[in-house]
């Protein structure tokens, strides 16, 4: 839904092969009525909404809503499927994996190319064999929690990693409470790509963790996976006009 007229939407839809409805709110009456008018947008762009997405349930109620701080930052199709709707998308970027102390680690971006402004999710999955667990947070001093970090790349901006729920764990004879992961664990990091003409990037992902049995801990591990991600060029960069 946008404040463009029907003609503009028809052209846009035809040019990009858009099959879903494009609704014309020329004059922004609906945008205003829904409380979404961007009141800080002055002429010649007065009438634009705050950019955002509403996810509706089958019964028409709002399941969730998602706004972006800048018109530049957008979720991709896979990001919307997986993070707004909780549906696992069938296609991802290249998977890289490694195995250490029998814990298998895989990593992938949710697509194999980035475009300027896109928020693409990095997933790191650990497959922890039965009998072992990996520490999460909160964690007592001296122990090593699961951590995922994207090595710095200029104009590539990682957000805070999302970790799943841990299970509580106690060791007989120790007062401390531990929080652990078992089995398959996925950590997800939102990464916003704010660069143009960056070409293909080799993104270094560092995963560190400590695996333990119920009676002993293995040495803390740190491994590095390199994920290639290509650049998808922008289609065009038009200027604002009324």
């Amino acid at each position: 839904m946008s404040y463009d007229g029907v003609e503009a939407l028809r052209g846009f839809g035809a040019k990009y092969g858009i099959s879903y409805p494009l609704l014309s709110d020329e004059g922004s009456a609906v945008i205003r009525a829904l409380g979404l008018l961007n009141e800080q947008a002055a002429e010649p762009i007065m009438g634009i909404p705050h950019p955002g997405t509403f996810v509706l349930n089958a019964d028409g109620s709002v399941r969730s809503k998602h706004f972006y701080p800048s018109y530049r930052e957008r979720d991709t199709g896979v990001g919307v499927l997986e993070h707004l709707l909780g549906v696992e998308a069938a296609v991802h970027g290249a998977i890289r994996d490694a195995s250490v102390e029998s814990v298998a680690v895989s990593a992938w971006f949710d697509k194999d190319s980035y475009a300027w402004g896109q928020r693409i999710w990095l997933t790191v999955e650990l497959d922890i064999p039965a009998g072992l667990h990996v520490y999460g947070r909160p964690i007592p001093d001296g122990y090593h929690p699961l951590e995922v970090e994207l090595e710095p790349i200029e104009r590539v901006l990682p957000g805070p990693p999302r970790f799943p729920e841990t299970k509580p764990f106690r060791i007989d004879g120790l007062d401390e409470a531990f929080h652990v992961y078992e089995g398959k664990v996925r950590v997800q990091v939102p990464v916003t790509f704010m660069l143009v003409d960056g070409g293909t990037l080799d993104a270094g992902v560092r995963v560190s963790f400590q695996a333990c049995t119920t009676t002993e801990c293995l040495a803390p591990q740190s491994l590095r996976l390199v994920l290639p991600i290509a650049e998808q060029p922008l289609v065009e960069r038009p200027q604002p006009r009324a």
Partner: peptide
């Protein structure tokens, strides 16, 4: 100025209002 995005538009749990607008045709 900062916008309180959480309060923008229809609230989570509420019915999304009816909207009838022209499409591309």
């Amino acid at each position: 100025t900062d916008v309180d995005f959480a309060s923008l538009g229809p609230a989570v749990g509420e019915p999304f209002p009816g909207v009838i607008l022209p499409g591309v045709d």
